[in-house]
C-alpha cells in the first residue's frame, strides 16, 4: 500500500476498506415485505369496495388502517425489527411515515407531553409534510393558470 497524503486519497482508501451493504439481500427483503404491505392494503381496499364504499373513502380507510397497525407495531417494539429486516420495504409504504411519527413520540415522552411528545413528534416526519404540502400548494397554484 502506498503512503496516504491527501484527504481525497484517504477517503478513497476508506471507501475501499468499508464493507458495502448486502444490497441484493436488502432489495429482496424490501421487495417482498413492501409488496406484502401493499397487498394487504389492496385487500382492505377491495373489502371496502365490496361493502359499497367509494374509491376515495376506500383509499383513506386503507391509509388509516395501515397507519394504525404500524403505530401499534411501533408501540409494541416490533416495527423496528421489521424495519431492520425489510429496510425500504417497510419505510417506503405509508407504514414508514407512521413509524417516523410514532417513534419520536414514544422516545421523547420523557421530555413531557407538550414539548416532548407534541414538539418532537415531527422530528423525522415533519420534512415530509413540509415538502409534500408545499409542493402540492405550488402544484395547485400552477394548475389555476395552466389547466
Amino acid at each position: 500500500m502506498k503512503d496516504i497524503e491527501t484527504k481525497q486519497e484517504y477517503l478513497d482508501y476508506v471507501d475501499k476498506k468499508s464493507p458495502n451493504s448486502p444490497i441484493l439481500k436488502n432489495c429482496f427483503n424490501a421487495f417482498w415485505v413492501g409488496g406484502l404491505i401493499c397487498s394487504i392494503g389492496q385487500i382492505i381496499f377491495d373489502f371496502c369496495k365490496y361493502k359499497g364504499l367509494e374509491d376515495t373513502a376506500c383509499s383513506t380507510i386503507v391509509s388509516i388502517t395501515l397507519i394504525g397497525v404500524a403505530a401499534l407495531l411501533t408501540a409494541l417494539n416490533i416495527f423496528n425489527k421489521i424495519g431492520k429486516f425489510a429496510g425500504a420495504g417497510s419505510l417506503v409504504p405509508i407504514t414508514g411515515f407512521a413509524n417516523s411519527i410514532v417513534s419520536p413520540a414514544i422516545e421523547y415522552k420523557s421530555e413531557g407531553y407538550v414539548m416532548g411528545v407534541g414538539g418532537k413528534m415531527f422530528t423525522v416526519a415533519g420534512p415530509v409534510l413540509v415538502f409534500g404540502i408545499s409542493t402540492s400548494v405550488i402544484v395547485g397554484i400552477i394548475a389555476i393558470f395552466f389547466i
Binding site: A30, V33, G35, S39, Q42, G87, A88, L91, V92
Partner: peptide, 22 residues
C-alpha cells in the same frame, strides 16, 4: 390485480432500498 399490486409496490420499495444502500 393483487399480483400487480404486489409487484409494483415491491419494485417501488426496491428503488428506496437502492437509495438507502447506495
Amino acid at each position: 390485480q393483487l399480483l400487480r399490486c404486489f409487484v409494483v409496490g415491491g419494485l417501488i420499495c426496491i428503488i428506496g432500498q437502492v437509495l438507502i444502500d447506495k
